[in-house]
Design a protein around this nucleic acid. Structure first.
Lengths: 193, 193
DNA sequence: GACGTATTAGAATCTTTATTCTAGAATACA
DNA sequence: TGTATTCTAGAATAAAGATTCTAATACGTC
C-alpha cells in the first residue's frame, strides 16, 4: 500500500467550508485550508489538483446534501414540505446554508472543471429540473414555461428569499418565516396542491 | 487649472459596472477597467485611491439609484408599488440589477472603506431601515421585530427572490412574476395594506 | 511665453497566492 | 530486510494583479 494517510479529502473540504462560511471566498486560500486542517500545503495538493476543484467538491457536496432531502419530499408529492425543507435544512446546516445561498458557484470555482466533476454537477441540475417538472405535471396536468415558473417560485425562490437575509446576518432563520413560506405557497399554488 | 481631463470617475465606474455585470467580480481588475475605458492605469488611480474604493463607489451608486425610487414610493405609503419597484427597476437596469442582486457588498469591496464612503453607506442603510419602520408603524400601529420581519419579507425579500434567477440566467424577468409579487404581498400584508 | 497644476502614460515594483518540486517518512508485502 | 507506494513537509517558483513612481502633456493664468 503505502504510508497511512493523516488527511483525506473531507478534512480539507471541511476546512474550506468553515473558512468560506465564516470569512468569505477570499479567505479560502490553499494556505489557509492547509493551516485550518493542520496539514502542509503539499497534502492539500495531494488530494486536489487545484483550488478550483477543491471548491467544486465543496459546492457539489453541499448541493447534494440539500437536494437529497428536497427531492425526497417532492417525490412524495409533498410540495409544501419541499418548500419548507429549505428553511429547515438551513437551520440544521447554517454553514452549508451560507455557502449555498450567499454565493454563486461561478464566483467560487471559476475555472474549468474536470469532466467527472462537471458530470456530477450536471447530474444534480438535471435531477432537480426533472423533479420540478414532474411535480408540475402532476399538479397541473402540464408543464408549460408559465407553470414551471410558478412552481419554481413557490418551491425554491420564496424559501430562498425567506432565509437569505438571516444567513447574511449570521442568524438562524426565525420561526415566523415558516408561516410566510407556507402562506405564500398556498397563495401561489392553491390550497389543494 | 491644469490639463483638461479625458476621463472622470463615471467613466471608470461605468467600465467597472460593465465588467462586473458581464463577467463577475474577478474580471474587474484595474487593468481591465482601464482597458475598457481606453485609459491608462494611472488615470484610474488618479480618480480612485484603490480598487476597493472604486467598487465601493459603484456599489453605492447602484444602491442609491435603486433605493431612490423604492423609498419615494414607500413614502407615498404605496407598499404594493414599492414591492413591485424592484421588478420594474431591474427590468430597466439589468446590469445594475445583476450587481445589486447577485453579489454581496463584502465580496466585492472587502477592505476598509474611507470614512466618507462609509458614511454614505451607513446613510443609505439608515434611510431604508427608517422608512421600513415607519411604513410598518403606519400599517400596524407598531413595529415589533415580528411586524418588521413580515413587512421586510413582502417588500424586499420576495421581490428580490422573484427576480434573481432571471438575472442569473441573463434574462429580463418575465411578466408573470409581477403577479406573484403582488399576490404574495396581499397574502402577507393583507388586502387593505 | 513662462509657470503652476491637473492629468495622462505606462513601466517598474510589490504582494499575494496558487502551484510545483524535491526530500523524507511510514507502511505493506515479497 | 529490501522495495514499491502513498503521503507528508515545506521551500522554491510562477503568475496575476494592485499599487507606486517618474516623465511627459495640456491648459489656464500671469
Amino acid at each position: 500500500m503505502g504510508r497511512k494517510a493523516r488527511f483525506n479529502k473531507d478534512h480539507f473540504v471541511d476546512a474550506a467550508l468553515k473558512l468560506l462560511a465564516e470569512q468569505g471566498p477570499a479567505a479560502v486560500t490553499m494556505a489557509a485550508v492547509a493551516g485550518e486542517s493542520g496539514a502542509p500545503i503539499g497534502s492539500v495538493y495531494h488530494r486536489f489538483v487545484s483550488r478550483d476543484v477543491l471548491l467544486a467538491e465543496l459546492w457539489l457536496r453541499i448541493v447534494g446534501s440539500f437536494q437529497r432531502g428536497f427531492l425526497e419530499t417532492l417525490k412524495r408529492d409533498d410540495g409544501l414540505n419541499a418548500a419548507l425543507h429549505t428553511v429547515r435544512w438551513v437551520r440544521k446546516h447554517p454553514k452549508e446554508g451560507r455557502v449555498l445561498l450567499l454565493h454563486r458557484r461561478e464566483d467560487l470555482a471559476s475555472g474549468e472543471w474536470p469532466d467527472d466533476v462537471k458530470e456530477r454537477a450536471e447530474g444534480l441540475t438535471r435531477e432537480i429540473n426533472e423533479e420540478i417538472r414532474s411535480f408540475t405535471l402532476r399538479l397541473y396536468g402540464r408543464s408549460t414555461r408559465q407553470h414551471l415558473l410558478r412552481v419554481t417560485f413557490a418551491l425554491i425562490d420564496v424559501p430562498y428569499a425567506s432565509v437569505r437575509r438571516h444567513l447574511e446576518a449570521g442568524n438562524v432563520p426565525p420561526k415566523a418565516i415558516d408561516d410566510f413560506v407556507k402562506d405564500t405557497y398556498f397563495t401561489i399554488l392553491g390550497r389543494e396542491s
